[in-house]
């Protein structure tokens, strides 16, 4: 098997990504990368009166994610979430 057969580009996971991010996210459980607290996304602290949406851990207040909506695109930073558990 050639290396080029093993490594694909991101288009190969278009279907998987579409499935993952189309699920009901408020029941998805997020693990805080800072303190390890596990909580459903519906239970996080959210600040919307800001240049973007800031999502914080309700246990330690560390930023879990930011969502910035630009004119023609959205920037999503998930660096504060160690893991998301999604229910199918």
């Amino acid at each position: 098997m050639k290396q080029s057969d093993l490594k694909l580009d991101g288009n190969a996971i278009a279907g998987v990504l579409g499935e993952i991010f189309a699920v009901e996210m408020t029941v998805a459980e997020g693990t805080c990368a800072g303190c390890g607290n596990v909580a459903p996304m519906g239970a996080v602290d959210v600040y919307v009166n800001a240049p973007g949406i800031v999502v914080r851990c309700s246990a330690c207040t560390q930023v879990l994610m930011t969502i910035v909506r630009g004119r023609d695109r959205t920037w999503l930073d998930l660096s504060g979430v160690r893991r998301l558990e999604l229910r199918s």
Binding site: D45, Y47, N49, A50, G52, V54, T61
Partner: peptide
């Protein structure tokens, strides 16, 4: 004077 805040 609107109040904007990204956290507590």
């Amino acid at each position: 004077f609107p109040v904007l805040s990204a956290g507590p």
